[in-house]
Design a protein around this nucleic acid. Structure first.
Length: 357
DNA sequence: AACACGTGGTT
DNA sequence: TAACCAAGTGT
């Protein structure tokens, strides 16, 4: 090593020293986030549900709208699920909105203070339970998310597969060890320090080791190729699928369907849309789709295709204007409601792209 | 265990 | 640009 300093064996690096370094770093570098300014159980729950697989910057405006519209857990519990879903529209992973609402209903009088009890609530898994318990209630609960996984894998230079049982066990054990060694640092701050470090310093492609307070004991840093961790996991290829959608606008509004709960984009509104096979003609398939809803249509101008990428699918959707429409809409799968609507509330991002095509 | 589940940013 | 991946959970 060019530094020439004696280094502690990383695996045995003193957990108390690591926790202390994390705490000092966090005190000086924590971003000012709205749920940190006032970490009530409700606000922490809301932020954590929104932050699942979603970036902080994306969550910010949604969090502000939610707490303004529903200032307390009881307010949210009293809301209609449809309203919650509409406010969530655009954030993605819509089962989270349903889970959030069910969670609020189940705990309207107050969230339980322990990770074990929290984990029994809808939408709250091991990570979120640890986050709420530690941040909002001060329980010394551990937590492992993508950031912590990456940071700890690098710190110890261990090839841990977070999807395997042993990998999970090792990661959670290490996080628990740090939690028990945190000293005067608050449990929630220890956890947030780990995540904040992972999100801003120990980042995926090019870790900023020169600014890292754990560079000393870090095995990945010592290896010279810190970006090698964590070991990449194989991802299923993104399947290409095709579809067709029909845009029909009148003075009464646009014809939209609300998708059945549970599946892709469940509960959200969109222009009537069908999925088609690779060789299927989009026009006739779309006409058949309208017919299934009791509507006879004549298609007009074709607009540019819309390409939309989901986590596991890449959709290329043909878009047609509907020139003529006859009949009264009768809901049928995948739509549980079909109506003319004058506003764009509750539309998925895909739906907005189709309307703008 | 493996896959479904949205959207947007980064490289 | 295609691939990666983000404060994961439910099934």
């Amino acid at each position: 090593m060019t530094c020439g300093k004696n280094r502690t064996d990383p695996i045995e690096a003193d957990p108390a020293a690591i926790a202390d370094a994390l705490g000092t770093w966090y005190a000086a570098n924590a971003r000012a986030l709205p749920w940190r300014a006032d970490p009530t159980p409700y606000r922490v729950l809301l932020s954590e549900l929104m932050l699942q697989q979603t970036r902080v910057e994306t969550v910010l405006p949604y969090f502000a709208r939610f707490v303004r519209r529903w200032p307390t857990l009881a307010d949210l519990a009293a809301a209609d699920e449809v309203e919650v879903l509409e406010e969530w529209a655009g954030l993605g992973y819509y089962s989270r909105a349903r889970n959030l609402h069910r969670c609020a209903r189940a705990a309207a009088r107050g969230l339980p203070p322990t990770a074990a009890e929290l984990a029994l609530l809808p939408g709250i898994g091991p990570y979120t339970a640890g986050a709420i318990a530690s941040i909002a209630f001060g329980e010394a609960a551990a937590l492992v998310d993508g950031n912590v996984e990456r940071l700890l894998s690098r710190l110890d230079g261990r090839d841990l597969d977070p999807r395997s049982k042993e990998g999970k066990r090792a990661l959670w054990a290490r996080a628990g060890e740090l939690q028990r060694s945190r000293g005067a640092l608050r449990p929630g701050d220890l956890n947030q320090a780990l995540m904040e470090m992972g999100a801003t310093v120990c980042v995926p492609r090019k870790p900023r080791c020169h600014t890292c307070p754990l560079a000393g004991p870090c095995a990945a840093r010592a290896s010279g190729t810190p970006e090698r961790w964590p070991t990449p996991t194989r991802k299923a290829p993104v399947a290409a699928i095709r579809g067709a959608a029909g845009v029909f606008e009148t003075a009464a509004g646009r014809l939209l369907g609300r998708r059945v709960a549970g599946g892709l984009l469940g509960g959200l509104w969109e222009p009537i849309r069908v999925e088609i096979g690779e060789l299927t003609e989009p026009g006739p398939a779309l006409v058949a789709g309208f017919a299934a809803l009791g509507l006879t249509v004549r298609l007009g101008t074709r607009r540019p295709d819309v390409v939309h990428v989901f986590t596991h699918r890449r959709l290329t959707c043909a878009v047609f204007e509907v020139a003529q429409l006859v009949g009264e809409p009768v809901p049928a799968p995948p739509y549980e409601e079909v109506a003319f609507r004058g506003d764009l509330r509750g539309l998925s991002t895909l739906a907005r792209k189709i309307l703008e095509a």
